[in-house]
Design a protein around this nucleic acid. Structure first.
Lengths: 217, 217
DNA sequence: TTTGCACTGTTATTATTTTAACAGCATGTA
DNA sequence: TACATGCTGTTAAAATAATAACAGTGCAAA
């Protein structure tokens, strides 16, 4: 019975929050804080202190009474949970505006999660670098993914190419796919899939705005 | 007691799926289909037929036995639920890659949800048009939001400007905010807020890929 | 006309996630 | 030493969401 918890069974939402806690904590650390209370973390994330404590309980971290949680320790612990020790190489499929936004956003920030390649079908883009990331032809996708040991693929192509790109990624042996197009894809069980659709989110906002407007009448 | 349902109490997840159903249905309509079964919708969205039927039950729509659902009728009904009759004008704050990606993505597609303005602090961008959307200075944000009756703001600025921009939007009387920066914002109760953090999602994918790798050992 | 089939619509159950309640304890104070 | 304070850690309850179970029904084939 080691201290190793079965992190595999952590709730999905807890995983998401841990990632957010860590980023908040890194900022706090920059401000020369060493300890933090659950209600402080909660305030930053706009959630309740209970939820913070519950999440930390689930990962088996204990704070000091009346001092709060040691920021550095907590950052390190979250790292051992979320990060892969050797790092996970990532690629962007589709170097349009969205793909380039993601590259700018991510590159350099997360040492354990590096973007090491980009792909596109547009000949004008192939061969160029964007924020330091080389854009290659889709034709070389399989080869480069294997060569560079890429584990995660982010799809940011136009909707009508989504299925094809997802298939190519799966065939190349990718382990995780993050699909930012509105077209749902199907992948084998051994590939982890996360999908996010911006139009849906915007329409959701529109719905609740509409409801609030009608409420007032 | 009209036929008007209390759509206000629909589950959040149902709202999201309705948006997705509609887009799938629009594609089916283009292919000259007139009716569709729950299991067909389910297949497109990679969910279960039960969930589709349950969602449609919640919005009070009945299909025809052995014929399925009338696509046009369903599209129209979803429209009356999600869309605001007069439309809701939308703006993008931050015309970087992400902002421009969203504009390209959304403009023209959703007639009831039009992007009518863009803002940035960069003088090189101000005055230019991107995919037909005029980029204005943040200084004119308040004026333009009121003039153009803008109800929804999408924030795509660098992280350190998030809070300031959200405040400006709130002050200008915006009704809904969609925040794509990793910095959480706080808004008054009368403003609907939706936040999405790409780094968190990517780290989540990384976590589950890591778990799958460890599983195999 | 009867029987089986393939759907829908609804209720019941289970799983997941959030929120509430509260016991326990180190510190500060009298 | 006793007691209040303000935190943590944990269990209990409630809310939300997904899944399962199944009754009802019109069409098609026999």
């Amino acid at each position: 019975m080691g201290s190793k918890k079965n992190f595999k069974n952590l709730p999905h939402k807890t995983i998401e929050r841990l990632s957010q806690y860590r980023r908040a904590l890194l900022i706090c650390l920059d401000n020369n804080k060493t300890h933090i209370f659950s209600h402080e973390i909660a305030k930053i994330q706009h959630i309740t202190p209970v939820q913070v404590r519950r999440d930390l309980m689930l990962i088996g971290y204990s704070g000091t009474l009346r001092k709060g949680y040691n920021i550095q320790e907590l950052i390190d612990l979250i790292g051992t949970i979320i990060d892969n020790e050797e790092g996970l190489n990532t690629t962007i499929i589709g170097m349009g505006n969205l793909g380039r936004a993601l590259i700018k956003y991510l590159s350099g920030k997360r040492s354990k999660l590096e973007i090491v390649a980009g792909f596109d079908t547009n000949p004008d883009k192939i061969g160029n670098k964007f924020s330091g990331i080389q854009c290659s032809s889709i034709e070389h996708l399989d080869k480069i993914i294997k060569e560079k040991n890429i584990k995660i693929g982010i799809i940011t192509v136009p909707e009508d190419q989504t299925i094809e790109m997802a298939q190519k990624l799966v065939d190349a042996g990718i382990k995780g796919i993050l699909n930012y197009t509105p077209k749902p894809v199907e992948v084998p069980d051994h590939v982890y899939l996360e999908e996010y659709d911006m139009i849906t989110t915007l329409e959701k906002v529109a719905f609740y705005v509409k409801m609030a407007e009608e409420q007032k009448k």
